[in-house]
Every structure is written in structure tokens, then in C-alpha cells.
Design a protein around this nucleic acid. Structure first.
Length: 416
RNA sequence: GUGUCCAUAGCUCAGUUGGUUAGAGCGUCCGGUUGUGGUCCGGAAGGUCGUCGGUUCGAGCCCGAUUGGACACCCCA
């Protein structure tokens, strides 16, 4: 217990946890495929530059949360803290910019060196959807709708609110940033320490500070909407109309900003109050400048990521669970000859697609206990008597009823 | 990185003002039932009290450090 502990902020996914994770992934993948997003996988390890260039030198993720090290060949590599940058890199290295749009679904572990707390781990898992090569707002609508449908399918959408905002295009954003900084500079001494630091690095983040003093100052700050140019306003209006048409409810939250530098236009977040302070369940936005920042051609993109642990927690909080595994059939041989036959019988039934448990040891009573504990629905009792008749006793473990069935008919009998 | 709380059997927890062989329930294993489970009954195994150091005649109980956990800040999925 003391000698070997898991690395801080990491967790074993034992069968019950794995089942829930798999359910989330499979549900998301199935829906994504209906929208034409095919599954891909990209490496967990990427050159550090991939994240540095794209997430921004000032973001917290890059400055203090990455697992970065020099490998044995002297290469600076990083364990991915998020999925988008790696996918953009794959798009460029694979020459896939010739075949747009690029619509993908992926999932897997992400790594961030943070202080663990509820809904936050150092190794956590995400499902992720990206749409590259579509500058039209229809792309934003599709991607958000896809996210909403995944939450619907998992039964958690009712516990979330879709918050929506626009960060405008680069021109709008720069204009607003300038106005905001000018305003906040006047209150520099009254801002919280954290926010004074943000003033230099990422002033937009001050907008959603939780500090009360900051909130009072921010209340009278310039509004983003006033600085949006017509193109940005039109883009946002189209996105909202699309969501309205699909009946996907949202709340415009002008203070919703993104932590990562590459976002523009649409920013959205499905949030919940069920998970303590880590309320973001599925979040994303548009990142038109990302691929170019990485040295590729100008390819617009939009996507989202959702935390699998958070989704699973939310499901649990709402009292729903992933489907239970299939109940196995237990084979209970009695005596050595029967045990030998049971081995081949198990093999035949498994080949026919049935889940079969063949105990490793013990008398009939022991094996029955074991069958019960495994939640078997049926026990096939194979004793010398039955064997002599070329049959087996099939016992329904719920009702206790049992009948003798010829071995040759067993498969069909169980397949009913 | 900051703050608060916490750390005793596989799990959930007791453990009195520091004082002889650290307890319970659940679970596990064995037996009652050598061809039949779920209930029930009997029994057993399993902790030296996260780790290291200190105070003391004596520490699971006090002090320090450290590791880990929980929650919040921060950040974010």
C-alpha cells in the first residue's frame, strides 16, 4: 500500500470504470459516424513545439501544466494536454489539406500537471470531434449539434446548459482587447493579484474571474458585442439561427472566453452544476488560425472535447449507468471425464458467440456458488450421468428450473 | 503553485485523558451440503495503525517532515 502508489492524479480504470468509459466512447463514436466524422488516432507524444506554437506561450497549459521531457535522442517531447493540436499536425504532415473537409472523431488520454480535485486528474480522458476546412457557420452549427446529441444519448443533457459566445474575428478581438485593457488599467491597483497577472498575459480571462472585487470592476467594462465588426456579428447570428432551428437551447454568455489562444468566433461550453467547481463537460470553439500558426496552409477549424470522467460522473450523479455486461453461462462439470468434456463444450459455445465461464476448480457446490457470484443466468451441469446419456442439465439460476438437454441440441437451446 | 480537512484489515469505519496480545460490519477462504448456487449457521485468514524522524518509561493516539487523498482557489474537459 505504501510502497507502490499510482502516480498522483492518475487512476486505474477497473472493469466497472472501464465499462462506463467504453460506453461513453462507443456512444460518441456511433453518433459522430452518423455525422460523417470518422475515427482517427494520433500519438500521445508530440514534439513540444506542436503545443507551444498553438496553445500560446502564455497559456497556463503551456507554461505550467505540460508533461515535457527530453527523450533519449535529445528530442523535446510533450505528452498531449489536448487533442486538437495533434490532429492539426496530422493534417499537415499527412498532406490532408488537399482533401478537405477533414471530419474526425478521436478519444484517449490527455495529460496535465495540475493539482487534482473533483473532476480533474493529471491523466484524464477525452472524446473529441474536429471539423477542418469549413469556414461557414454551418460547420459550427453541425459540430455543436453533434455535441448536444452525444449528451442526449448519454442521458446527461438535461443536467447541462449550453453557454455560447463569440470572440469575433481577429480584427474585432484586437479592438476589444485594446479597449478592455485600457479600461482595466484604470483599476490596476484594485484588481486581484491573479487578474493583474492576466492583464499582461490574457486580459480576456479577467472577464470570468471569480473574485468579487474583479467582478464589480468587470461589470462596467466595455462589452465585446460593441466591438464586433459586421462580419463577426453576421457569423454569430447565423450560428444562433441554426441552433434555434434545431431546437438546441443556449444562453449567450458574453463573458465566456477560452483558455487557449487559438480560438475565434464561436466559443461554447455545455456546463453543469452537478460536478462541483469543474463545471465544463463538453466545450470547444472555432480556431481558424490554428493550422496556419503551425506552419500549414490557412485551414479553418472548429471542434470540441469532452471529459470522459466528467461525463461518467454526471451519469452516475443522475442515476444512470452504462449497460451491464452480458450475463455469462456457467458450465459446472462434475468429475474428471466431465471436466474434459466441459473444456471442449465451453469452446464450442464461445465459438457460437456465448459468454461462458468454466470454473477452474472445486466440487459442484463450489462451482455453483461461483456461477452465482458471476451473475450467470444459466448453469450447465455436466455430470457422469448426463455424460453417459450425451446430455447436460441446464439450470436457470433465476427460477431454479432445470431440464436435461442433449449436448448436440445445447447450442440451439441456449441460442433461443 | 496557494489554502482547508484527512490517512487504522480488500472495503466502510470504531479505537475512550498516550499504557498490557488494535476491534466491528461487509467481503474473502474453509466447513455444515464428497451432484446443485442465492438464505442461514459455525470457523479461519487478513492491519503494527501511509512513510520517516522526534517527544515520552511507554504513541494508532502528541510534534515535525514527507507521500498520497478530498474539496476550494487557479485553470480547464
Amino acid at each position: 500500500m505504501s510502497a507502490l502508489q499510482p502516480v498522483r492524479g492518475t487512476r486505474d480504470l477497473l472493469p466497472d470504470d472501464s465499462r462506463r468509459h467504453r460506453h461513453v466512447v462507443e456512444t460518441a463514436r456511433a453518433i459522430a459516424e452518423r455525422y460523417g466524422y470518422l475515427e482517427i488516432a494520433v500519438p500521445i507524444l508530440e514534439p513540444t513545439e506542436v503545443f507551444k506554437r498553438t496553445l500560446g506561450d502564455t497559456s497556463d497549459v503551456v507554461t505550467k501544466e505540460m508533461y515535457t521531457f527530453t527523450d533519449r535522442g535529445g528530442e523535446m517531447v510533450t505528452m498531449r494536454p489536448e487533442a486538437t493540436a495533434g490532429i492539426a499536425r496530422a493534417l499537415i504532415t499527412g498532406g490532408l489539406t488537399q482533401d478537405l473537409p477533414f471530419k474526425v472523431f478521436t478519444h484517449g488520454p490527455m495529460f496535465r500537471y495540475e493539482r487534482p480535485q473533483k473532476g480533474r486528474l493529471r491523466q484524464f480522458h477525452q472524446i473529441d470531434v474536429e471539423l477542418l476546412g469549413v469556414p461557414e457557420p454551418l460547420g459550427d452549427i453541425e459540430v455543436i449539434a453533434l455535441g448536444a446529441r452525444v449528451l442526449d444519448a448519454l442521458g446527461v443533457r438535461r443536467a447541462t446548459v449550453l453557454e455560447l459566445n463569440t470572440l469575433g474575428d481577429g480584427e474585432s478581438r484586437n479592438a476589444y482587447r485594446g479597449a478592455l485593457v485600457d479600461y482595466l488599467e484604470g483599476f490596476r491597483e484594485k484588481l486581484s493579484e491573479d487578474s493583474r497577472a492576466r492583464l499582461e498575459r490574457n486580459p480576456l480571462r479577467i472577464l470570468d474571474s471569480k473574485n468579487e472585487g474583479d467582478r464589480a470592476i468587470v461589470a462596467d467594462a466595455p462589452i465585446f458585442t460593441d466591438y464586433l465588426n459586421d462580419a463577426s456579428k453576421g457569423f454569430f447570428a447565423t450560428v444562433r439561427e441554426g441552433l434555434d432551428a434545431l431546437g438546441i437551447a443556449y444562453q449567450v454568455n458574453p463573458r465566456l472566453v477560452r483558455g487557449l489562444d487559438y480560438y475565434c468566433h464561436t466559443a461554447f461550453e455545455f456546463t453543469t452544476t452537478e460536478l462541483g467547481s469543474q463545471g465544463a463537460v463538453l466545450a470547444g470553439g472555432r480556431y481558424d488560425g490554428l493550422v496556419e500558426t503551425m506552419g500549414g496552409p490557412s485551414v479553418p477549424g472548429i471542434g470540441w472535447a469532452a471529459g470522459i470522467e466528467r461525463l461518467a460522473m454526471l451519469m452516475t450523479a443522475l442515476g444512470s449507468d452504462a449497460p451491464a455486461p452480458a450475463r455469462p453461462i456457467a458450465i459446472v462439470p462434475i468429475g474428471a471425464p466431465a471436466e474434459a468434456r466441459a473444456l471442449t463444450l465451453a469452446d464450442e459455445l464461445r465459438a457460437a458467440g456465448l459468454a461462458v465461464e468454466l470454473g477452474y476448480r472445486g466440487a459442484a457446490g463450489k462451482r455453483m456458488k461461483r456461477a452465482n457470484k458471476l451473475n450467470a443466468g444459466i448453469a450447465i451441469i455436466l455430470g457422469e450421468d448426463e455424460l453417459a446419456r450425451g446430455a447436460a442439465t441446464v439450470r436457470n439460476l433465476d427460477s431454479g428450473e432445470q431440464t436435461e438437454v442433449p449436448l448436440t441440441a445445447l447450442r440451439d437451446h441456449l441460442g433461443r
